[in-house]
Structure formats: C-alpha cells, structure tokens
Design a binder for these strands. Structure first.
Length: 361
DNA sequence: CAAGCGTGGTT
DNA sequence: TAACCAAGCTT
C-alpha cells in the first residue's frame, strides 16, 4: 500500500474537507432524521437506510418513531408490533437485531446509547458502517462510516481500481477515510461524503460539472469516472416453485402460519405453502398432502387462481395460488386461526400480500 | 470469505 | 427488460 500513501500525499486534504463540508452544509437535504442528533433516532434511521433508498425509508421512519419514540418504548414493545412497523421494508433481521440491541441498551446501559466504539459496535446488528455513522452523527466522533456511496466517491477521488464487492476492499476505504477525516466536523464530513454520492457522484452519469470536489478528483482528471468503482457481478438468483393456499372455513376464519425464527423472512406470517417438485403429480395434491402431514388437516382445494412471482436478491419464488376450505379441525400449533379483520395485525412479506390481494379481488 | 438476507426504483 | 442499484450485517 505504499502506492496509496503516495496518492494521499498528492491530495490537499484540508481543502477537500472544506469544499465538501461547505457544500454539504449548503445543499443537504431536509430529512426527518436530521431534525436533531438523538442517538436513538440516528440509529433507527441508519438501520433502515441499510441497502434501502431514502424515499422508501422516510414514511417508515416517521411511523416507527411515532410508535416507538424512545429506547424504552422500543425495548418494551411487543415483537409482533415491531415487525408490523417494518412490514414491506425488507431485510427483517435488521429490526429483530435492532430491538434486541435496544433491549440491551435499556437494561445494561440505563437507556443511554453507549458512545464507545467497542460497546456500541458490539451490539446486535451494528456493523462497522452503522457504528461509524451513529458515533459521528450523534456523538461527533471522528470514526469512518464507509458505505457504498463512500466507496464510490473515494474510488473516484483516488482512482482506486480494487473490486468494491470484495469484503477486503472495504478495509482500504476505511483507512482512506481516516486519512481524509475532518476531526472537528466528523458528522458533516461523513454525511457530506454520502450525500455527495447520493446526489452528485452517482453510479451512472455522475454530475461532475456540479461537483464541489471536482478539483480533487483523479478519476475526473483521467476521464475514467464512469468506469469507477469496479464492482464484480453477482450470480443470478435461483428459481423456486411453491404452491400456496388461502385457507378458510365455514365461519369465515383464515388460517395462517408463522415462519421460523431464523432464515428467510424470519418470524413473518404467511399463507400455508410448500415447495413443489416438478413432474410430481399435481401441485394441488402436493399441497393437500403437505397440510395433512404438517397440520393434520383435511382440505378441499379449488382450481388454480393465478401465479405470484416474487424476486429476492438471491432467489425467485414462483407461487401457484389456490383457495381452499377446511374440512376437519386443524392442528392449531402449525396454523393460526384468525378473522379477516385481524389479519392486518400480522406482518406478511410482500409476496403473501400479493396472494391476499388475489383473494380479495 | 462467499453466501444469505427484501423490496422497489431506474435504466 | 433484464440488470443494476440503495446510508450493510451475519454466519
């Protein structure tokens, strides 16, 4: 990394800090989590913003803070309600980890978010990025917060050609940001880098002519800003065929299932379903057999109602949807019986919201 | 380390 | 439209 030290020596870091921070203070967006520096609110916003767009997060953040305004209230909240407030936001382990960590802060730190790297960083769901973001924004500590924006911006500023998809590459950027950090304004510096990446230094066709740090940018100077950063491609998602049934009884109750507490869509609710094997009798029969074995229940399943396709990052679900009636009394440990009006108290993944919409149509 | 883990918007 | 993208963390 002797090469990196030479690159850093060529930069006027003080001027870079001033240009970036002046621009940020003038141009920063007015966002609901920027109204104060309450560590809890900053933390919630940072967790929501992981891999998620600002526009998507805004309404979730406002609703979540209204429901759980403080550490104490989130720590004491019913997990079902917490999950419901996250419904549709994705990556649901984020909120289970957040509540778990908040409980620890409530019990072990008297409700005060710890301000040391070691203590805050060891909480569930708090990785290097979130640690740096919260400590710099809420506690004004000069800790790097390296996200995708920051890697893109700094890859261009310094012409770094390492593959940012590799975990090891992030350590390079953490060192780079430490070298660039403005110790007197870490909050504005970190947020300025991210804001720049979000507004100016975008992945495709960056607005270099509007960029406040253009004069510091090696990629712009070399005309290679469109080629940076280098990011290797991910493999295509695998396909999975499922059959699901909206199961009701004579009295109008609906039968739903709670997913396991780990793995995909953990702890969310769903309509009973099973993976189907191709070329193995009819999906309807596979579904009936599954329900018989799993819940000891006999059902009458109607004709195919349609297909829901749902794309995850690493997976595609192809769900054949059926409507069915309960014939005998089901085992209530695998299935839960609820009224249609009660359904909205339970958090469902978007794929199963699509199934319910099909039923209600 | 590579893979698992959601969803919706943009090109 | 398929591919890519968005303020990552855990195992």
């Amino acid at each position: 990394m002797i090469d990196m030290e030479m690159k850093l020596e060529q930069k006027n870091i003080k001027k870079f800090q001033k240009d970036l921070i002046s621009w940020y203070e003038k141009e920063k967006r007015d966002l609901p989590w920027r109204t104060n520096n309450d560590p809890y609110k900053v933390w919630v916003s940072e967790v929501m913003l992981q891999q998620t767009r600002v526009d998507t997060v805004i309404p979730y953040f406002e609703n979540f803070i209204e429901k759980f305004p403080t550490i104490k209230e989130l720590a004491e909240a019913d997990e079902e309600k917490v999950l419901k407030a996250w419904e549709g936001l994705g990556y649901y382990s984020r909120v289970r980890n957040l509540q778990s960590a908040v409980k620890e802060v409530h019990e072990r730190y008297g409700g005060v978010v710890p301000s040391s790297k070691e203590e805050f960083g060891s909480l569930k769901g708090v990785g290097p990025y979130t640690r740096g973001a919260v400590l710099s924004i809420a506690y004004n500590q000069p800790v790097p917060a390296v996200d995708g924006n920051v890697m893109r911006v700094m890859a261009r500023i310094l012409s770094i050609w390492d593959d940012i998809a590799k975990p090891k590459t992030k350590t390079i950027f953490e060192k780079v940001v430490e070298a660039f950090m403005a110790p007197e304004k870490p909050s504005e510096f970190n947020q300025g880098l991210m804001e720049l990446g979000a507004i100016i230094c975008t992945p495709k066709s960056p607005s270099c002519l509007l960029c406040p740090v253009r004069e510091h940018c090696s990629a712009f100077e070399e005309g290679c800003e469109q080629e940076l950063p280098v990011k290797s491609k991910k493999k295509k998602p695998t396909l999975k065929s499922l059959a699901a049934v909206v199961l009701t009884d004579e009295e109008g109750y609906v039968y739903i299932h709670k997913r396991p507490e780990s793995g995909l869509l953990a702890n969310l609710w769903e309509f009973p379903n099973t993976e189907t094997q191709k070329g193995l009798k009819h999906e309807r029969e596979q579904l009936a057999t599954f329900l018989k074995e799993k819940a000891g229940i006999t059902v009458e399943i109607g004709p195919l109602q349609g297909v829901v396709e749902h794309v995850f990052t690493h997976l595609v679900w192809n769900i054949s949807v059926f409507f069915g009636k309960v014939v005998n009394k089901p085992d209530h440990t695998y299935l839960k019986k609820v009224t249609k009006a009660e359904l909205d108290q339970y958090a469902f993944p978007v794929s199963h919201q699509k199934i319910w919409n099909m039923y209600m149509k």
